[in-house]
Amino acid sequence: MELVIVSDTHGDRAILESIQQQHPHADAYLYAGDSELAASDSIFETYQAVQGNMDFDAFPMTRTIEVAGITVFMTHGHRFGVNFDLTQLIAAGQEVGAQLIVFGHTHQLGVERHDNMVVLNPGSISQPRGQFADIGGTYAVVTGNRHALNVQYLNRQSQVQPELSRTFTLV
């Protein structure tokens, strides 16, 4: 299973096309909000998207999908208080039985485990902030199965950032 996860492009449609071209065989392309594109844009025939605080078109606020036996809960995060803590986000993921929670909004990459869930922010591909902003924008590729998830962060040139790679065992 391979998931490509992107967030916070803020109008940079070309980077979504480029990422898709770099990963032509992914099982799913997930977009965690703030595209500033129309929901009818053809890019969203490939990317499954949620509405960010800077999206003004009709995207869903959350999505729960299953890919290769992994339940993924996705939201932008602004309505779940992710600038303060992850409590509301984790509760929402638990409610749907998620093994992977995806969010954006903060423009800061991060991944951690809570109970039997991996909580992941791919960072902003176009306007990165925080400790890893000097990478120049990031997205995530998650591979694995119901027993383990491997998370890799890549930069705008689709180069893996090996120091950020993590593997999480799921029960």
Rank of each mutant, 00 (worst) to 15 (best):
F59G: 07
A91W: 03
D85L: 09
G69K: 11
G52F: 06
Y29E: 11
T75C: 15
V6M: 04
E45W: 00
G69M: 11
Q152E: 12
D41T: 05
I135V: 15
A148M: 05
G52Q: 09
G77S: 04
G110W: 00
A92I: 10
S165W: 04
F103R: 04
V141F: 00
G137L: 07
L30E: 02
Q157E: 13
L3V: 08
V141P: 01
P122I: 03
L89C: 05
F103I: 10
L89W: 09
V82E: 01
L100N: 03
T75W: 05
A91R: 13
Q20N: 00
G81K: 12
D27S: 15
I135M: 09
Y47M: 03
G136C: 07
T75E: 09
G137H: 07
A49F: 00
D27M: 07
V67P: 09
P162Q: 07
T138W: 00
N145G: 13
E45V: 09
S7Y: 02
I43Q: 07
Q161Y: 06
Y139S: 08
M1H: 08
A28I: 11
G130Q: 10
H25L: 13
F73L: 12
T46Q: 02
V160Q: 13
H107L: 01
S7N: 04
Q99I: 08
Q99T: 12
T71R: 15
G69W: 08
A14T: 10
A68G: 14
I5V: 14
Y31E: 00
I125C: 06
Q20Y: 01
Y139F: 15
M61G: 06
T46E: 00
A58G: 06
S18Y: 11
T143C: 10
T106E: 07
E112V: 05
S40G: 07
I125G: 01
N150H: 13
E45K: 14
S124P: 07
M61K: 14
E66H: 06
M61T: 14
D34Y: 08
Y153M: 08
V50E: 04
A49Q: 01
Q152Y: 03
A26H: 08
G52V: 12
I135G: 07
L170Q: 02
A26S: 14
S126E: 10
V151Q: 02
D57E: 13
G69N: 13
L16F: 05
N155F: 05
P60Y: 12
E112R: 12
V6C: 08
A133C: 04
R166S: 13
V141S: 02
S42M: 08
L89F: 07
D85Q: 09
P60H: 12
F59P: 01
R79D: 13
V6K: 03
T143K: 09
S126P: 04
H25R: 14
G52L: 10
Y153P: 06
P162G: 11
T167Y: 03
A92K: 11
D27K: 11
G11P: 00
S35E: 09
